[in-house]
Design a protein around this nucleic acid. Structure first.
Length: 557
DNA sequence: GCCGTTTTCGGCCCGACTGTTTTCAGTCG
């Protein structure tokens, strides 16, 4: 599928045009097309074949022509045209905070800056500071920006950001000046990674709140400090923006700063058509304040059903909300249970009873104890005897805790030939068999998974792509084949909610939903302190528009 | 470059903060 490749091409064109100072709306149009392409669940080639490229919103005559060229000639000549007089790699420098296209272009034109080394040279020899509109402080900011650029090339996984957000909120929420505090941005939308963290505070006394914020223990550097906005870099090298909002603007600000950008731009268009203006302060008609204190009210005023943050990506949610027809996604509260937890029988650190007690705190109806199978020596995989002993212990504990169902599960290795790590007569004693690849990730993973799915006892395939957000690409598998088989065999695919996995991800879950595949949510916890990560998995289901009927956890009891 | 029950041309979201200026440009979200 060429969707991503084309998205990259259009983003690159946008970068080049921005560098050259082209019409900014043209740049927006290319970026919009790139965004649409990277989120498209169906193959762009099919649209091309059926001559329906222009049916896709955001793709018009010009970009359709370029996509056609790509499929017919294997290239987009516009990309070559706009990049031919730009040195290789200079566009990457646009990702340096505080260095924008105007300054970069000037440095290139006047000082011959072509790469990061050149940039550092003109900073150090003082020539950059002598350019028009430049000065010592601007150069200092760019210098700091380079440091951030080098260290924080990657976005932070959502699960890590969670801990930082919790810490900041805990530090600020008890101030008497703080009426409400709430995270916004991609964090609130539960994107799997975040580039920075946005936090909103309702207060009438911004000075005190800002003062406290920029002096928190985790602050490494203060980038800006004002009455409405302050920005800091934490000791973990992530930027946190804090905004202080007045009561009458709270809902509008929450809406505005939650984004996504594409979602907000479309909302603005709707507001405009209704004769309103919408910004972070509220909805206005001829500069007269209409509403803004409540986020739901903001959507209602625009004739829209309230759209949950996780859906706000401009992937069709606005059109559905206009018709009051959004999918019924599931709540974070009252989730029925966790399908993937390791006990100290294998490599977990807590006993089965400790896990059960913790699960009760979550109000779960069930919890699945899923230890590693015998081949997983590195992870204390259970021999058949150990497995039988463990199951007996589960029976005993079950008697003590009648209000929660303890499921006898196992995360069973898919071996090199696609067979499972226990014989069928053992597998059939389990409530849930979760099959997974842990070794030989490059050894025909697709074939092995498909073979494992033939086994009559397999209920779930764990972490189907094997990717790790911070360190590993997915196995090379054709997920569509897995989806078809899963639907046919009624096997659920996991949303592994461990923060560095989130596998399947939102995009693939949306795709799986088209095949009527059920998803199984489990945290893969190895200690009870990790069980909160079920939130991350639920977030994925919400971003993928899944309803209860799409989620295996709701169909177990 | 996209888009249209105002439009096939002329719009396209808009405000905060910083730094370099002395009324504004650049960057960011």
């Amino acid at each position: 599928m060429e969707n991503q490749r084309l998205a990259e091409i259009f983003n690159k064109i946008a970068d080049a045009l921005e560098f050259k100072g082209e019409n900014k709306f043209k740049i927006i149009a290319y970026r919009k097309a790139a965004q649409v392409l990277s989120n498209l669940t169906s193959d762009i080639y099919d649209y091309y074949k059926e001559n329906k490229l222009e049916d896709i919103p955001g793709i018009g005559e010009g970009i359709a022509k370029k996509i056609k060229e790509y499929f017919e000639k294997g290239k987009v000549s516009k990309l070559e045209e706009v990049t031919k007089d730009i040195p290789d790699g200079i566009l990457d420098l646009l990702n340096i905070p505080s260095l924008g296209p105007k300054t970069l272009y000037l440095a290139y034109k006047e000082l011959g800056v072509k790469n990061l080394e050149d940039l550092e040279r003109v900073i150090n020899d003082g020539s950059l500071a002598k350019l028009p509109q430049m000065g010592e402080k601007k150069v200092e900011n760019i210098k700091n920006g380079i440091e951030i650029f080098k260290k924080a090339q990657e976005r932070m996984p959502l699960g890590k950001a969670y801990l930082i957000v919790n810490e900041i909120i805990n530090e600020l929420k008890d101030m008497k000046e703080v009426k409400l505090i709430e995270p916004a941005g991609s964090f609130r939308r539960m994107k799997e990674t975040v580039g920075d963290i946005d936090i909103l505070v309702m207060s009438e006394e911004p000075e005190k709140v800002m003062e406290r914020f920029v002096n928190l223990k985790i602050v490494e550097r203060v980038l800006a400090k004002g009455d409405t906005k302050s920005s800091i870099i934490t000791n973990q090298k992530i930027q946190v923006d804090l905004r202080v909002i007045k009561k009458e603007s709270w809902g509008a600000a929450l809406q505005y700063f939650t984004g996504s950008k594409a979602h907000n731009i479309k909302l603005r268009g709707i507001a405009k058509n209704l004769g309103y203006k919408i910004n972070e302060y509220g909805i206005f008609k001829d500069d007269k304040y209409i509403c803004g204190s409540d986020e739901k009210e903001v959507y209602e005023k625009l004739g829209l059903q309230y759209i949950p943050p996780e859906l706000r990506e401009d992937l069709g949610e606005i059109e559905l909300a206009l018709k009051n027809n959004l999918p019924e996604i599931v709540d974070y509260a009252n989730f029925p249970g966790d399908l993937h937890i390791h006990s100290n029988y294998s490599d977990g650190s807590n006993s089965i009873e400790e896990i059960v007690k913790e699960a009760i705190k979550y109000n779960y109806k069930f919890v699945a104890i899923a230890d590693h199978s015998r081949s997983a020596k590195y992870a204390g995989g259970l021999s058949i005897d150990e497995l039988i002993k463990r199951n007996k212990e589960i029976d005993e504990i079950q008697k003590k805790y009648p209000n929660i169902k303890i499921l006898k599960a196992m995360e069973v290795d898919i071996l090199g030939d696609g067979s499972l790590d226990y014989p069928d007569e053992i597998l059939k004693q389990l409530d849930i068999v979760i099959a997974a690849i842990h070794t030989g990730l490059k050894k025909e993973p697709e074939k092995r998974i498909l073979k494992a799915m033939e086994n009559p006892y397999v209920k779930i395939i764990a972490h189907p792509t094997g990717r790790l957000i911070s360190s590993r690409e997915s196995y090379s598998i054709d997920l569509e084949k897995i989806f078809k088989k899963a639907a046919e065999r009624n096997i659920a695919l996991e949303i592994n909610s461990y923060y560095d996995r989130l596998d399947l991800n939102d995009y693939n879950c949306r795709k799986a939903r088209e095949y009527n595949v059920k998803m199984a949510i489990g945290t893969d916890s190895h200690n009870v302190e990790s069980m909160w990560q079920i939130k991350l998995g639920i977030g994925v289901t919400r971003r993928a528009w899944l309803s209860k009927k799409d989620i295996y956890n709701f169909q177990i009891l």
